[in-house]
């Protein structure tokens, strides 16, 4: 998996970290601000004011229902971050214990079962899984989180297993194992702190992937339920308005690119900063 790494090495990682951090911080702040203030309530309609261009009253104009686009993009940041965080949470909650168990049971039954299980999950494109879940349960944030989260469990299980195995090969851990320290203690005291960096890097990348997945599902009408703001849903609404109001199709896309770019750069920068030798699986 080394082939999947990227990023320039010769002192080029710091800019990545800073640019990525700054882009991400702005999204984070926007989402936090949106939590208690937006120029207008994100779902406040005014049919007569619909599809306006930018003005003093509406800095980025209004949408099909006369809602303030800036407010909706801000709200969309909140939605995106919630989905991203929850999908990471699901992935970690499942993937961390499974990955550790697999590492400690190397080549045993548990390890094989987990490996085959994640192979199976990877075989179903995440988008497809999400489409099916949405068709069964109807769309909604929970379903997006579950769909992306299941995929993340497999991703984290693999990453954690790999990282844990490489740590376990180190002398200090070999010693701990040799003196017969119990496994839970080894896992908590030695393994977890040492793999935290790799997991953090992977989490950043999966965060970006979750945001892309949410946008794609909402675009297909299978993601966030109306009237909650979602960038993907905004793009879906924009498609028939391309002739009438092309702005509608541009702004939410820029918001997605901004956020995902920020997180990806942050992930690359973090990885290089934490340990240039540790390479993680890139979600492709």
């Amino acid at each position: 998996m080394r082939l999947l790494m990227s990023g320039s090495k010769s002192g080029g990682h710091l800019p990545q970290l800073w640019v990525g951090g700054a882009l991400t911080a702005i999204v984070l702040i926007t989402a936090l601000v949106a939590g208690f203030w937006t120029p207008y309530p994100a779902d406040q309609q005014s049919i007569i004011d619909r599809l306006q261009g930018p003005s003093m009253a509406h800095w980025l104009g209004t949408d099909l229902y006369g809602r303030d686009i800036l407010s909706r993009i801000m709200g969309g940041a909140q939605t995106a971050l919630w989905v991203g965080m929850a999908a990471i949470g699901v992935g970690l909650a499942g993937g961390l214990p499974l990955g550790l168990a697999a590492a400690m049971n190397r080549n045993g039954l548990i390890d094989t079962a987990i490996a085959r299980g994640s192979d199976l999950i990877f075989a179903f494109p995440a988008l497809l899984t999400a489409v099916l879940i949405a068709a069964i349960h109807g769309p909604g944030m929970i379903n997006v989180i579950v769909a992306v989260g299941i995929f993340n469990i497999a991703v984290f299980a693999r990453v954690v297993r790999g990282a844990a195995l490489s740590i376990m090969a180190r002398p200090f851990l070999q010693a701990a194992i040799a003196i017969g320290r119990p496994w839970p203690s080894i896992a908590l005291v030695h393994l977890l702190p040492n793999i935290a960096g790799v997991v953090a890097v992977q989490a950043t990348v999966q965060f970006a992937a979750a945001i892309l997945a949410e946008a794609a599902l909402s675009y297909l009408g299978l993601g966030i339920k109306p009237p909650d703001p979602s960038w993907g849903k905004m793009l879906a609404d924009a498609q028939t308005l391309l002739y009438l109001s092309p702005m509608q199709a541009i702004l939410p896309g820029l918001a997605i690119v901004w956020t995902v770019l920020g997180l990806n750069l942050l992930g690359d920068g973090l990885r290089d900063a934490l340990d240039p030798k540790l390479r993680s699986l890139r979600a492709v």
Binding site: A249, I250, V260, L261, N264
Partner: peptide
């Protein structure tokens, strides 16, 4: 490590962040 590399990989980073359906919409536009 040189400028060309930086620019090319910068574009690649942006390319990773652009959802393909949005890029499709832009192409249509």
């Amino acid at each position: 490590g040189r400028l060309t590399d930086l620019i090319l990989m910068g574009f690649a980073q942006i390319g990773l962040a652009v959802p393909n359906f949005w890029f499709g919409l832009l192409l249509i536009l």
